[in-house]
């Protein structure tokens, strides 16, 4: 649909049943409907039967509305929340292997320090740094290291979580209650 707002990046959290094939259902939905996933990360939650995906998708409000509705329509999806306009924290982890010529070693370590990145591997010719942060911070670090020669870098994709309330502790969210259609006959189900 046209006439939407300007396209922008949305961070969408999706809770899914931790079942065989669920990742390909979500990925398949995006390819079938022509939406682009900018990043996707998946992991188990406290409840091992539930996985949590964090998706970053670009689109105007109509595209994002369809994305969330279509995600919700997948049978294995338990909950979809668009965190973009809610108060939330986003982080991404990056590993980066950079050339470490003698004349650059000091500067690389200083830069790592400023960005609170850890040095996790050292050889005579390279460093591997581990950095976490939001997208802006990681991009800035990449820019500063680029002149030294980046050999390889890998990013996890974003994970995101809603912030707690400002006042007092919120109760852990109750799981969605299963409800059985009280009148299954409405769609002709023969019991």
């Amino acid at each position: 649909m046209q006439n939407g707002s300007e396209p922008r990046k949305h961070t969408i959290a999706v809770q899914v049943e931790n079942k065989f094939g669920v990742l390909s259902r979500v990925a398949g939905l995006f390819s079938a409907r022509g939406y682009n996933i900018e990043s996707l990360s998946v992991g188990e939650t406290l409840d091992p039967s539930v996985s949590r995906m964090t998706l970053v998708v670009r689109g105007d409000e109509f595209v994002i509305e369809q994305v969330t509705k279509q995600l919700h329509k997948l049978i294995d999806v338990i909950k979809v929340s668009d965190l973009t306009d809610d108060d939330h924290v986003e982080r991404e982890l990056m590993l980066i292997r950079v050339n470490a010529e003698p004349q650059h070693r000091e500067e690389i370590l200083r830069t790592a320090d400023i960005f609170r990145a850890k040095v996790v591997d050292v050889t005579p010719v390279s460093f591997v740094l581990e950095a976490t942060g939001d997208e802006g911070k990681l991009e800035a670090l990449i820019e500063l290291l680029r002149p030294m020669g980046i050999q390889e870098l890998v990013r996890t994709g974003k994970v995101a979580i809603a912030r707690g309330p400002k006042t007092r502790a919120r109760k852990a969210e109750a799981p969605k209650k299963a409800r059985v259609a009280d009148d299954p006959k409405v769609v002709g189900f023969a019991d």
């Binding site: 899914v16 049943e17 049978i75 294995d76 999806v77 338990i78 799981p175 969605k176 209650k177 299963a178 409800r179 059985v180």
Partner: peptide
Amino acid sequence: RVQMRSYN
């Protein structure tokens, strides 16, 4: 009966 937390 069928109870599914992800489909209601």
